[in-house]
């Protein structure tokens, strides 16, 4: 092992390859746990949408489709910049890495900003579940169930976004210091995997929550 390779390999690994493979497998396994974590919520959604299809459709029409679509576009764009950041890290190009990470964070932050605005709007309209819930349509309790799931699912998703922004901020600082290069870039790769996962969750949430009432 060359001296520069030894510097980036932890004591219990034999080679940079072994270390990178372990990190990447670990990240994938972690994402499997995340799929199961969200899976419980998706199951609850499937069960209750099956039970109360009309209430879910009516409640879904209360959501703002323009904001939802904008957010979808923002997240997809952030996945692209994230992928470019990973590539920049692999090639050891410091400036593009920093720029693409910053862009990813900016897109993610705008997403969260829009999400906060939507939440605020729902609070004002009395669509937050609980004692103050007001819904004019029929089957109000079942529409409340929709909003329970809406806030639980998008809230958990937003929490993952916030964590993702924190991770990216760390990557940004390390990247700016030139820590990543062809030999050592698995942290950026793992952060990228995480970011894409959060993106994919949204790709499922968007049609289930925003579009489910549109075709009816």
């Amino acid at each position: 092992m060359a001296a520069d390779a030894r510097a980036v390999v932890a004591h219990h690994f034999d080679s940079p390859d072994q270390q990178r493979e372990a990190a990447s497998l670990g990240m994938w396994v972690f994402l499997v746990t995340e799929v199961m974590f969200f899976g419980g919520l998706f199951l609850a959604y499937v069960v209750y949408r099956g039970s109360f299809p009309h209430a879910f459709a009516a409640a879904s029409r209360e959501l703002d489709i323009v904001l939802g679509t904008t957010n979808t576009a923002l997240l997809l764009a952030s996945s692209l910049t994230m992928a470019l950041a990973v590539r920049a890290a692999q090639l050891g190009r410091r400036l593009p890495l920093v720029v693409f990470l910053a862009l990813t964070m900016a897109l993610g932050s705008v997403f969260l900003g829009i999400k906060m605005y939507e939440y605020h709007h729902k609070f004002v309209e009395g669509l937050f579940p609980g004692a103050a819930f007001r819904f004019s349509g029929p089957e109000a309790p079942h529409a409340e169930m929709f909003f329970c799931l809406y806030f639980a699912m998008t809230g958990l998703h937003a929490l993952h976004m916030v964590i993702g922004l924190g991770v990216l901020a760390v990557m940004l600082v390390l990247g700016a210091r030139g820590r990543f290069g062809p030999l050592y870039h698995n942290p950026v790769e793992c952060a990228g995997l995480y970011w894409h996962f959060v993106d994919i969750v949204w790709i499922f949430l968007f049609p289930l929550l925003y579009l489910v009432g549109r075709h009816a």
Partner: peptide, 22 residues
């Protein structure tokens, strides 16, 4: 398995705190 228990307990706690009815 464990993540499923985690989300279940989270929903349980949310139900108690917010009085929602999942």
């Amino acid at each position: 398995g464990t993540p499923v228990l985690a989300i279940t307990l989270l929903l349980l706690a949310a139900e108690r705190v917010f009085g929602i009815g999942i």
